[in-house]
Amino acid sequence: MKLSKMKKKNNKVKYILISIISFTVFLIIWYMVTDVFKLVKPISLPSPVKVLESFINKFTVKRPDGSTLQAHVLSSLRIVLTGYIAGSIVGVPLGIFMAWNRKADMFIRPVFDWFRSVPGMGWIPVMILIFGINIASKAAIVFAISFVAILINSYSGIKNTNPVHMWVAQTFGASNKQLLFRVAIPSALPHIFTGLRQGLNQAWASVVAAEMIGSNRGLGYMIQMNRENSRADLIIVGMLSIGLVGTILSFVLQKFEDKYVRGRH
């Protein structure tokens, strides 16, 4: 047990080291291509040094897209979290309910199957018509996207409950309600978290799409505007910020999962 723990720790150190090396190599190549050999014009692909400079400046400079970086990030986060939390609040219970109740499954499934086959971008026009050009329409798009992944995983988690676990609980005289809340849901929890993770990734990735509908702030908007302004450095700053915030969100969710999913692996 001690040995395996040490091995685990070693693997973690190894993983971090390899990640650092991988990023360093990537940066060196980028630097070579731009600043050293000048293979690409700075207006198409600025050097990493220039991007870092713009990144730091963007915390105080509002030009040319009208907001500082943190204002863009906060605006995007607000949209994503609103849509995502709503998607979770509807998706998890509905997925569980459909998996548990045959009639509900039969009734809701046809509509859901249609719903899930519409790609994220396909929701943009109708959401604008319903909510107008504002935060609500963007959050609604994020909702539609994250909700699908969250529902499907919650559903399959409940459906995959080990029948032996159900038998054992039944022989202990567990009621139908107890079977659901003390066996099926705890057993499905890892699946439910997989859905929440997928939903969060997709929700955050869809921010660019959602912010393409007339907005005046947000990371997607910032990228769009700076394409029109031909500011490649700020486009890259926007992309890096999307990656960075996405990683932080996943990390926070992982902490929740570690706390609530016990005794697996």
Binding site: V168, T171, G173, G263
Partner: peptide, 26 residues
């Protein structure tokens, strides 16, 4: 099923999300 009839199966018997105590007092 009735609590007066207890069953132990070969595998995947315990609830992995509960502790030993949680399983035994189920």
């Amino acid at each position: 099923p009735d609590p007066k009839i207890g069953v132990v199966y070969q595998e995947t018997n315990l609830f992995p999300w509960l502790t030993v105590m949680g399983n035994v007092e189920f």
